[in-house]
Design a protein around this nucleic acid. Sequence first.
DNA 1: AGCCAACCGGACGGGGCGTTCCGATAACGT
DNA 2: ACGTTATCGGAACGCCCCGTCCGGTTGGCT
Lengths: 211, 211
Amino acid sequence: MTGRSSPSLRSDARDNRERILAVAGATFAAEGLDVPMREIARRAEVGPATLYRHFPTKAALVTEAFTEQMATCTAVVDEGLADPDPWRGFCRVIEKVCEMHARDRGFTSAFLAAFPHAVDFAADRERTLGKVAELARRAKAAGRLRPDFVLDDLILVLMAHGGIRATSPAVAVAASRRFAALLIQAFQAEPVTSPLPPAVRLPPTVVVVVG
Amino acid sequence: MTGRSSPSLRSDARDNRERILAVAGATFAAEGLDVPMREIARRAEVGPATLYRHFPTKAALVTEAFTEQMATCTAVVDEGLADPDPWRGFCRVIEKVCEMHARDRGFTSAFLAAFPHAVDFAADRERTLGKVAELARRAKAAGRLRPDFVLDDLILVLMAHGGIRATSPAVAVAASRRFAALLIQAFQAEPVTSPLPPAVRLPPTVVVVVG
DNA sequence: AGCCAACCGGACGGGGCGTTCCGATAACGT
DNA sequence: ACGTTATCGGAACGCCCCGTCCGGTTGGCT
């Protein structure tokens, strides 16, 4: 995975770098992208300067921290593409991607955002989206996906999915599941009402917006 | 509407107060709730102190700025409730509320958030939600709304709707329309595929998340 | 016209965040 | 063992934001 670490790097430096990446990944997942750099440095038991030496900017850190998730995402799509039933593959992709986004608060932003200096990211994103387009084409051909579906709809609903906030990961995942099921319901060509995952009560307020 | 302005208030003070409210409303609508207080003061051509004298905290300002919208929201629900066809009324409510949220970025947060010191808000919210529940009950009885729909689903999708970001209001509204149509599709009991509003291309990135 | 009080807005202190500087430290080659 | 050099991390810079204080100003009433 991260085997392409810089070749000549002092042992302590390489150690710190790995620790930072691990901490950053976990933290961004749990609390979103707006965690202060200082906080990540603190949790990694590292000074701020060290953090910035390894990752010159916050965007750089975010990018690196999410490459793995990005790969997983691509893998999910590939899996769906490999399914003999394209509609089922399509549904699986939606479900799994939604779940990934639900489990990882930061990933949603990272996925949807374009990082000016993270060209690799945008490229990956486009490539994966292309694959989804292919999957959608097949699902349409099979008569299961509604013909007026557009790839932009996926962006739309993923963006929307990102709006879901919950107190605990468990609730987030449950809400995400129900949401995904509704979407799939909406996307199918010849509507067949299928049962929904359990409903979720979102606590009246999760975020203090007035910050 | 805002006829209950303080009775004894010097003319310039009343003037400023109104200007501040107008500016705050417009600004929150256009850019969301996280606009600095100073910025609002600046646009209202007023010193920060004046702003704070009229509205002791940001929550207070937000609350006052959105009372009108909140009333409109309630009116929309009442309208839907008055429709002889409960399902059509239900759909109209979803569509209109979504459009309101699309036109007004701040309102989404304001609606979903609980302001500790804005009790009126929460009460209004609950009352309106109760009405929606009644409307949903009727729509279910009419066999048009799927029986496993829960009021929490509305919260869920409104939350999700809040995740939609766009560059221009026009795009936002278009995206919102398509999203609402998809939801309605998903919510109906005996699925009948109906045409969707035009698709929307969401620009690759709208928000710089690294801020 | 003139006075008093209400009101205004520039300036201030406190805090946070992204990012950088520099002396101290510890790893590696010999 | 020891010096060189990459690396570390606390302190500091610049910026922005919130909320408040105080001297100047302006409205309203007599």
